[in-house]
Design a binder for these strands. Structure first.
Lengths: 185, 185
DNA sequence: ATTTAATTTCTGAAATTTTTGAATACTAAA
DNA sequence: TTTAGTATTCAAAAATTTCAGAAATTAAAT
């Protein structure tokens, strides 16, 4: 119910970072708290531990659920809901990433697509459109990549991560590799 | 000085996205405006174009400079300052990425490091520490990767980007590649 | 030195976001 | 049904952020 000093520090830090990560202080704290707490907690426990109102916790839970970061547990014979993290740290990071992409990139991508179809008349417009095209291409690439990463198996991911500076080397070999099987793409 | 309808739409969109990208509306608009405008603009032109106060523009410029997204130009015999984007779209994306890492990841990484050194006593603490360790490792990996990406040559990046779904295939070959030269790491 | 042109800083007002807590709704079981 | 233990909603209050415009500052030109 009460947190060790170090754990409290972590939870408060999550609160402070909350808005940078895409939610607000309370929700940051809640997320931090739930991920370092072994046993799922009830809404009241959360409210007490963080000294925030019960209503606020309820809002926060809804928000965290919309990010798919927490899930509900039930204990037989107990009608309270118990909340805990929705998956591994990696899962959660992925969810945050995905959700932020949806909020920070997708709307822009869609606007840019529309905008690029338009024909440019003046010189200024041509320049603007050129820039927008570049932004579009960049965002599209990021989008494709993130989809790609999520498609990889955890093992592949693991080895990709471990690759580190080996990425350069792998790239150097890429041509040879992809040529042999002679696959288009 | 005045923007075409489509360009205005883009600039306003940047404003709306501003807070999601890490700054506020005005600064988002300024950033959008400067990146699609061919010629560098003065602070007054920016204020007029966006219908915001001169003081606000000044603040915004400082902020955008702290992100290293814009740079100053001077015209001989003219004492006004002219502002334009600090580099290519790719450069700017990199800056945003880098800056956000600094704000969203680094502080947490540092807190986690401290926290992990501490010894865990209770069972709860052990669990919390384990989770923090995982978060730490994940963030560290992201950090290493982003550093790695920035080290790649533009050509390598290009080919990495084009790789797309080929990444899986490349990974499958990775072992063979890295085994042959018998290099550690 | 003084004037003029430009930029920056500062303050409080306005807008926005977050939080509370009382009212309301829900749900299982008595 | 009613009740008791929950969870949710939402209007109002509090806190925070953004912004315009005035005042202060800086720097060039005369």
């Amino acid at each position: 119910m009460s947190l060790s000093e170090k754990n409290l520090a972590f939870v408060m830090h999550c609160g402070e970072m909350g808005s940078r990560w895409g939610f607000n202080r309370t929700i940051g704290q809640m997320c931090g708290l739930l991920t370092i707490t072994k046993e799922p907690m009830t809404a009241n426990e959360i409210a007490d531990t963080l000294s925030i109102s019960r209503g606020n916790v309820s809002m926060g839970i809804k928000e965290l659920q919309s990010w798919r970061l927490i899930k509900v547990h039930h204990i037989p014979g107990d009608r309270k809901e118990y909340y805990g993290p929705a998956g591994s740290i990696w899962d959660m990071a992925n969810r945050v990433f995905e959700e932020r992409k949806k909020r920070e990139i997708d709307p822009t991508l869609s606007l840019l697509r529309d905008n690029i179809l338009e024909e440019a008349h003046t010189d200024d417009e041509r320049f603007a459109q050129q820039q927008m095209q570049e932004i579009h291409d960049l965002l599209e690439t990021v989008t494709k990549w993130s989809a790609e990463l999520q498609r990889l198996s955890p093992e592949q991911l693991q080895s990709l991560m471990k690759l580190g500076s080996g990425i350069g080397k792998v790239l150097d070999f890429k041509d040879k590799i992809l040529k042999k099987p002679g696959k288009g793409e």
